[in-house]
Amino acid sequence: MDQKYRRVAYYPGCALEGSGHAYNRSTKAVGKALGLDLVEVKNWNCCGAMEVKNIDPKLQTYLSSRVMSIAANDMGFDTVMAPCNGCYHNLKKAEHDLGQDPESRAVAERLSSKAGHKTYEAGQIETIHALDWIKDAIGEDGIRTRVKNSLAGLKIANYYGCMYTRPRHIFPEKDQGADSESTSDPHFMDDILAAAGAEIVSFPLKTACCGGAHTLSDSDTSTKLVLNILKAAELAGADVIATECPTCHSGLEMHQIRAEKVFGERTGVKILYFTQLLGLALGLTPRKVGVQENISDPMELLKEKALA
């Protein structure tokens, strides 16, 4: 274990300052509990999420490149950790396009120079997800030795969503043998939460789409997709769906309610960020990991499992 990720630049992104605040809170709390150093990217901007690329993909590449340029050129980092799948995906996509596509590079150069900062050069930054961060900096053995409050008896379905693994070509480090993450059957969250003592259920929809891009603009489609995921998790016997993306997380929570209100379909599975679950296992209180901010109120379940 080389533990090269013990000190990284941290890019929370817009959602983690809003609806995904509990993810921000629990990520920082877990980092602190594990003695890891997160240094927030200075004066960051939005990566473009799933929307700006529909106006212009090269503009989205520029927006993501500015974040990496600050981390590399102003702060001297070579690694950016982004817990949001959207941010993570876009920084990876920008890295790919700037390396492969001269037109994208030309637009990034033009906008960077007019905006008054150094142009990001492909290769300066390695972007990692919060899952890579925990997996590398602490590892499963490290987690096992630090667990104070085992998740034993908690049945978890791990939900990774779309942007963490697709499209495959922007994640060249994945599918590289046993230790690497898989794009068809991702397992880093399974590994981490299993090390924290949880019972991981076999969940066939771990990379299904929640319809997050159209959560408001085509709500019926999103509700149907989310309902599939919730029902599949319940069918697999899960008490909890663990998430690693603020858009997936709030999509599951919102459309769980919408399914109830609009389709009359009620599901009881609880939705928690993997960092909240890991934090609880490390002995942090529910409040420290922001459980009071979750809409699908899991407190009763956590008390029943002696986690709160």
Partner: peptide, 10 residues
């Protein structure tokens, strides 16, 4: 109505 899940691109 494409939801941009990128399964097709993959």
């Amino acid at each position: 109505q494409c939801v941009s899940c990128h399964k097709c691109t993959t």
